[in-house]
Design a binder for these strands. Structure first.
Lengths: 115, 115
DNA sequence: AAGAAATACATTGACAGATGAAGTATATCG
DNA sequence: CGATATACTTCATCTGTCAATGTATTTCTT
């Protein structure tokens, strides 16, 4: 089974931020990581990925720099900012909440209990 | 904390189908149910809700009929079709998969293990 | 009885995120 | 030498969300 994009829509930015929490990285590598982490069930379309980088950079969540000129194609590396770390923190908290709510709404087996 | 719409985008149709799995219902009631189930953390905007009904009906997932003329404003009831039930089944399976994958991607604490 | 609030549905235009498609460039492998 | 992998970029288009606006009825409040 592969995961439809609309289901993950809205999580794109947080997924990228999560990757950058570990270390600076670049588009291609991040996408390979996502593929690996999901057992090949999901990958970003290139346009989605680079659109997200632009959005995140404009929002001050990440900064970018060109990698050293080694062999191979040039890479643009991204680094998460302090603001980005906070954003990731908030988004992943929200995810935990969302998960519970969606369990309730999609299956209707249980009602959501507030704390 | 309330849940941002973008995070739930893509789940709208499945949430509605889940409600209709129980019994026929109408827009206003479904939305009140969603509010109740989420402890007030989420509700559909009206335009979103009625857009979704139209989409689902055009896709053959639901059918609709006007409620009996009782007291109160007229209500358009919706009923889930066999196709809709199958769709709900698939979508909620997908949700279980998605949940695991997003846990991995958003927190990066674990890698997704395929079966 | 008058006015506010709740119930109930519908449409339209604008906006944001995702994406197909196309393009640029280098390195590696057979 | 051609195919494939690596790596980034932009643009036009599509889809779902939603603010705004409108219609209509009933119930609650004073």
């Amino acid at each position: 089974m592969s995961i439809s994009a609309d289901t993950l829509r809205g999580h794109t930015d947080t997924i990228i931020l999560a990757q950058l929490m570990k270390k600076d990285s670049y588009g291609y590598e991040i996408n390979k990581n996502v593929q690996r982490c999901t057992g090949g069930r999901y990958e970003f379309k290139e346009a989605t990925l680079y659109t997200a980088f632009k959005r995140l950079e404009q929002g001050g969540m990440i900064t970018s720099y060109w990698g050293e000129d080694g062999p191979g194609a040039r890479r643009r590396y991204y680094a998460i900012t302090e603001e980005g770390r906070q954003q990731w923190q908030e988004s992943s908290e929200e995810w935990k909440e969302t998960r519970i709510i969606l369990d309730a709404l999609l299956t209707l087996e249980v009602e959501y209990e507030s704390n």
